[in-house]
Design a protein around this nucleic acid. Structure first.
Length: 551
DNA sequence: TGCAAGACTTGACATGAAGGTG
DNA sequence: CACCTTCATGTCAAGTCTTGCA
């Protein structure tokens, strides 16, 4: 049902433990021991016959600049290396790492020729792909050894899987969407950059030969084992436990419990924000409308963002330019048209009929404002969450997403599944319910690269199957005729046999058609995120017509 | 009290292994 | 069994929300 965690096995007892644990001073563990993070391999210099050219002339780069050049060379067939911002950022950062002499020569990216470097890596990838079974096996075993050594820790005496035990390797930063920092150099992390967190008296992991850690601390109010500061945004990065760990699993459970609590309170909360639409205070009206969006459309809270990031918004950060009001549209009244880039620069486009009072309020909020002014200028996420918390303990904006996602799943399963469906039909129904959630949460994906091709293949299969059915029908008819003219045991058996063949073929056709529908409807919708983060697994398990097979 | 820093969850996408099919 | 699709897992960016501090 759900990967990356072991929620289904979590006994109720743990909820009680969690509730008890919560009251105590934010302590997350008693003992924590681990082997530290695993560093990426050192840079391997290029062989001498792989040459970088500047202005058409061979130029031997020093080790440091050569490594950075390879980052760029590896990406050459990616679209983003053609972007001006990417090129500019890369070239600036690259030049900064060059020696004085290199900098004197290399002044323009357009005069750099990385093609031999690029070819070298393409070739290497090809070689890797063509390795023998034995070589691949050996590589796999090496990897397993590393995972065995670095991939686990001991937390309160239990051996737990670590989520990301590898330090992120250096490379070129590629943000999502139009990120102003795309192409910047993500520097190599040294042990001297890393803070280790473990319990007092535990065996402290040894830093690599000739190095030391930045710091070793024993803070049991946090769950991370190691951290460093990444150089692009200056944000911390953490080594943490895998979702299958007790720690993460209980947190996940807690999240769904909060969503369940919301179910009990949601009627009164909805009444409250509806009454806010008529408040005398502008701030309350904005709060009421924002909350309505968050509840009805599952919008994200929309925190303020730092500069130097892609221009994306959520509910509270919506600007006037992101919505258009239509008194009437497509035969519906009071329609709001949303068009903005949300998390990960995924476009949110939706035309929603709303209550008249909401519509009138929106008009009011937009009065005398420029397109790039905030729609909700009197509120922010802190204010919204503070309010929500007063309505219900633990309630924040994101709980509505979890609550509405899980509720949608439950409702859809109730509507669409019946006990007597075939397994294929049940899978289609479940996927559809899952899909309804993904659409609600706007979880999109790029259409798979092979989509058109595999669709065509399926199309052909269906065509062939139909032809087979036609043939089988004719053969059945012939057999029947023959049986009528000259009845015998043999002819009777033949009719029965032909009937069976036809029936099987028709079943196969139905299966193929179901498959195609499923595939088509899934083209640009990502189901994974909702399955992983939004759907309470207990709903899937409890659904009587679904739980008989594993998803 | 406000806001920056910190901690933790959510997200799309890449990759590799598993498994189904002709 | 070769091929291809599917699914799980890994990666790391980008959100949310809390905490800490001036």
């Amino acid at each position: 049902v759900k990967n990356r965690d072991g929620l289904l096995n979590t006994p109720t007892r743990r909820v009680i433990l969690w509730e008890e644990g919560k009251s105590s001073d934010g302590q997350k563990w008693t003992t924590l021991e681990h082997n530290g993070p695993l560093f990426p391999p050192e840079y391997e210099p290029l062989p001498n016959n792989v040459v970088f050219y500047y202005s058409g002339e061979a130029f031997k780069l020093g080790l440091a600049s050569e490594e950075i050049a390879t980052f760029y060379a590896k990406m050459l067939d990616h679209e983003y290396t053609t972007k001006e911002v990417f090129q500019k950022n890369f070239f600036n950062d690259w030049r900064e790492e060059m020696t004085e002499d290199e900098r004197k020569v290399i002044k323009k990216l357009s005069k750099c020729n990385f093609s031999e470097l690029h070819a070298y890596f393409v070739n290497k990838a090809e070689e890797k792909k063509n390795m023998t079974k034995e070589e691949k096996q050996a590589l796999k075993e090496d990897n397993a050894k590393l995972t065995e050594q670095y991939g686990f820790c001991f937390l309160d005496g239990h051996r737990e899987k670590i989520g990301n035990f590898r330090v992120e390797p250096p490379g070129l930063f590629r943000g999502r969407g139009e990120h102003p920092k795309m192409g910047k150099l993500k520097k190599r992390i040294q042990p001297e950059d890393i803070t280790i967190n473990c319990s007092k008296g535990s065996r402290i992991p040894g830093p690599p030969q000739g190095h030391k850690w930045r710091k070793v601390q024993h803070d049991n109010t946090v769950t991370w084992l190691a951290s460093w500061v990444e150089n692009i945004q200056g944000h911390p990065k953490y080594i943490m436990l895998n979702p299958s760990s007790k720690l993460k699993g209980e947190k996940d459970w807690q999240k769904y419990e909060t969503a369940r609590n919301l179910k009990l309170r949601v009627d009164s909360i909805r009444r409250q924000y509806q009454s806010d639409w008529s408040s005398h205070e502008m701030r309350n009206r904005q709060r009421g409308v924002a909350l309505y969006f968050i509840d009805k459309l599952a919008l994200r809270a929309g925190n303020e963002k730092e500069d130097d990031t892609a221009d994306t918004v959520g509910c509270c950060s919506l600007r006037v330019e992101h919505i258009t009001l239509h008194k009437e549209l497509d035969g519906k009244e009071w329609v709001v048209e949303f068009d903005f880039l949300g998390k990960d620069s995924i476009r949110y486009y939706n035309k929603v009929p709303v209550e008249k009072r909401v519509f009138k309020n929106l008009k009011l909020f937009m009065e005398n404002k420029d397109p790039d002014d905030d729609l909700f200028d009197r509120i922010n996420t802190t204010y919204l969450n503070k309010n929500l918390n007063e309505s219900m303990a633990g309630l924040t904006a994101k709980v509505f997403r979890t609550f509405n996602a899980s509720t949608t799943l439950q409702d859809q399963l109730n509507i669409m599944t019946k006990e007597d469906m075939t397994v294929e039909e049940k899978i289609l129904a479940y996927n559809r319910a899952n899909r309804a959630v993904a659409i609600l949460c706007n979880h999109q994906r790029a259409a798979p690269k092979t989509f058109e091709k595999s669709m065509q293949l399926l199309q052909e299969k269906i065509k062939k199957k139909k032809e087979q059915i036609e043939l089988a029908k004719r053969e059945l008819k012939e057999a029947k005729n023959a049986h009528r003219e000259r009845p015998s045991d043999k002819s009777k058996n033949l009719v029965a046999k032909k009937e069976k063949v036809l029936k099987r073929l028709q079943e196969q056709l139905k299966k193929l058609q179901l498959q195609m529908t499923d595939k088509e409807e899934n083209k640009v919708i990502a189901l994974g995120t909702s399955k992983l983060n939004y759907l309470d697994p207990r709903i899937t398990v409890a659904c009587p017509s679904i739980s008989c097979f594993s998803l």
